[in-house]
Amino acid sequence: MNQRAAILSLITPAYLWLALTILLPLSAMLYYSFLSDVPIGNREVSWTTENYRTFFEKAFYSELMLRSFKLGAEVTSICLLLGFPCALALAKSIRGRTKEALFLLIILPFWSNALVRIFSWTMVLRGNGILEYSINWLLPGTGPLDLMFTYPAILLGLVHSYLPYMILTCYISIDAIDNQLLEAARSLGAGKLTILFRLIVPLALPGIVAGSFLIFIPVIGSFMEPRLLGGRNGTFIGTIIEDQFTAVFNWPLGAALSFIMMGLVLLILFGFSPLVRRLK
């Protein structure tokens, strides 16, 4: 059997598929981002860099881009603060069947539809919703909370959606740390905090970095969560891009904004690459 033919027949279908669904669409989008209009029918279309200029000239867009990146950073940090201790507890202080069961319980909700989860939050947070009702029942006279359609509501919904990613990636790298290493440190007199920050955190860094990117990237592109939980306060670059494609039909501007967003993400990835390289 010719080795070359074997390799080709194994990989060609998948990569042709990816070319058709990822590579070519992204190229088409890049092309569109330099057009003055959508080339439908007989419209006059010319080359232009106006779509990119719009971004840099109108403070509106760059402010929204910044707002999205800030949201991404905040959601990622909260997930890390909540998720890391959870992963640590799961990996190092619980054993056997309980561990496997708890692990399944943590990834189960993450298997339910993201949209459905956000929808449930709207029922919890809205005026006269579950949260208001329960708090007023426990502490009568608290009055309305007005949480729905605010920035904290968006934050809450996104953290809830992405927390399992952080727990999962941190868990995998903490679980791989040899217990004997921790024992050795302890017997040499290292305190709990020393063990945590000088041993566990550095060794779990690959998981922390992986989890952070798995959360940060989708959050800055999110549009459904801000719309449903943020209402009028839910305008981010993701919702603006979505509008360009589904409501305003300014595809070239939407394409340009998407590429600027991807460019910024790549810049951040490169910024972190020395760290990532050190991990290998």
Partner: peptide, 13 residues
């Protein structure tokens, strides 16, 4: 890549 970008790119292409 954010799904938003992949989705819109597929729509365009």
């Amino acid at each position: 890549i954010p799904w938003l970008i992949i989705g819109t790119a597929m729509l365009v292409f």
